[in-house]
Design a protein around this nucleic acid. Structure first.
Length: 381
DNA sequence: AACGAATCCAACCGCAGTCGT
DNA sequence: AACGACTGCGGTTGGATTCGT
């Protein structure tokens, strides 16, 4: 059954608002409010407009303290970050930007920001290709290398996997992001890190202290997680948390391995004690990431052999992330699409996340996350 | 200067959710 | 519970403006 139209379309005026109409509407609402009934409002004040049209005009244009145009770099970052994280929830995004309307942000995104983002990505890819950068990271002491949330990689013997640049800004669990000054260190507690890791990799966490896992895969309700993490309650130090993980295998769709290889890798379970995680995590403290650069290293414990291990970063972030190794939406390895038509949440998000983290179903993605509020992220591209 | 293409953005449209009866 | 009225949201449209040739 179709709904009755909200107004008689034949009797209402459409198109741009005249200054007189604006003045009439504005004066009435400022004096009397909307009365909670937009449909009846235009008749009350003698406007030949649909109630919805009046509401839109008020909210997007006449309302006090509305800002138009002139988006700042900071606003760009917030919009991009939120879009990548939650998709086209324009009203939610607008709520984080005082004075901005969802319509404005939507238009701004569609006409400029998206292109800017894709343009940057394109430039980076071109630069990476020009330089013919072969990602290099020295492994020492072990065959097992660790991919660390916040930007990093997984290495396992011959196979290398690359992650794109990862969050520079994270909304604290519980939300409340409003301005830059609130972007305080986010991994003050284990809960924050847990949420972060879940968000990043779709993994899961045990509630109780560390229990070395003997299982070959971490599954719940037939969902296979790329890692399984438990924190030791004995440890106050966040960065002494233990991650029991199947990092020997990356999320399966982020690489071009054949399925049999993937399956065999999933049989391995490893435990790591992250010591140097703050190197990466601290990226979140600033608007732009502190990029791993030449000479940096990442230290972690391989609990399997009780040895401390070290990743050396060579050639900096370009090598660390592997710019041209991203995965497109069909799961095959290749250059990420940068076409102007590529504009879905998945497409844009895939510029930042490996494909496996970019669910084609936003809700599924959400189900794998325990964030009460969406993390948002945006590196300096 | 003239024209078409590209871009911008206000406004429209229809759907889904909420609320009151 | 069912229904209608209304609101809010996100996608899309189309006119105006700017840009490029």
């Amino acid at each position: 059954m179709g709904r009755a139209p909200c107004c008689d379309k034949a009797k209402v005026k459409k198109g741009p608002w005249s200054p007189e109409e604006d003045a009439t509407l504005k004066a009435y609402i400022e004096q009397n409010g909307t009365g909670g009934n937009w449909i009846a409002l235009p008749q009350k004040i003698g406007l030949k407009r649909c109630g919805k049209s009046c509401r839109l005009r008020w909210l997007n244009y006449l309302r006090p303290n509305i800002k138009h145009g002139g988006f700042s770099e900071e606003e760009d970052n917030i919009i991009c970050s939120l879009y990548i994280s939650i998709g086209s929830r324009w009203s939610i995004i607008a709520a984080q930007l005082p004075g901005r309307t969802d319509n404005d942000i939507k238009n701004y995104w569609n006409t400029r920001l998206k292109k800017k983002l894709l343009g940057k990505q394109r430039k980076e890819q071109a630069a990476a290709k020009r330089a013919s950068l072969k990602p290099q990271i020295l492994k020492t002491e072990s065959d097992h290398s660790l991919m660390v949330p916040g930007g990093g990689m997984i290495m396992n013997n011959q196979t290398q996997y690359y992650w794109p640049e990862l969050p520079a800004v994270i909304m604290p669990p519980g939300g409340g992001l409003v301005n830059q000054t609130q972007l305080d260190p986010i991994f003050k507690d284990q809960e924050s890190l847990k949420n972060f890791l879940i968000k990043l990799q779709g993994g899961r966490f045990s509630d109780y202290h560390h229990q070395p896992s003997n299982t070959t895969t971490a599954t719940t309700n037939n969902v296979q997680y790329p890692f399984d993490v438990s924190f030791s309650q004995d440890h106050d130090q966040l960065y002494d948390s233990t991650i029991t993980t199947m990092l020997a295998s990356p999320p399966t769709s982020m690489n071009s391995m054949n399925s049999s290889t993937t399956a065999s890798r999933l049989q391995e379970t490893h435990e790591y004690n992250i010591i140097g995680a703050n190197m990466i995590i601290n990226q979140g403290l600033e608007n732009y990431p502190v990029e791993p650069s030449h000479g940096d290293h990442l230290i972690y414990n391989n609990n399997n052999n009780n040895q401390q291990q070290r990743l050396d970063i060579i050639n900096g972030v370009e090598s660390f992330y592997g710019m041209d190794q991203m995965v497109n939406n069909n799961g095959s390895t290749g250059t990420t699409s940068t076409s102007a038509e590529s504009n879905s949440w998945e497409d844009i998000s895939s510029l930042f996340y490996p494909n496996s983290m970019v669910s084609h179903d936003y809700e599924i993605c959400q189900q794998h996350s325990t964030f009460e509020q969406p993390a948002y992220l945006f590196g300096d591209q």
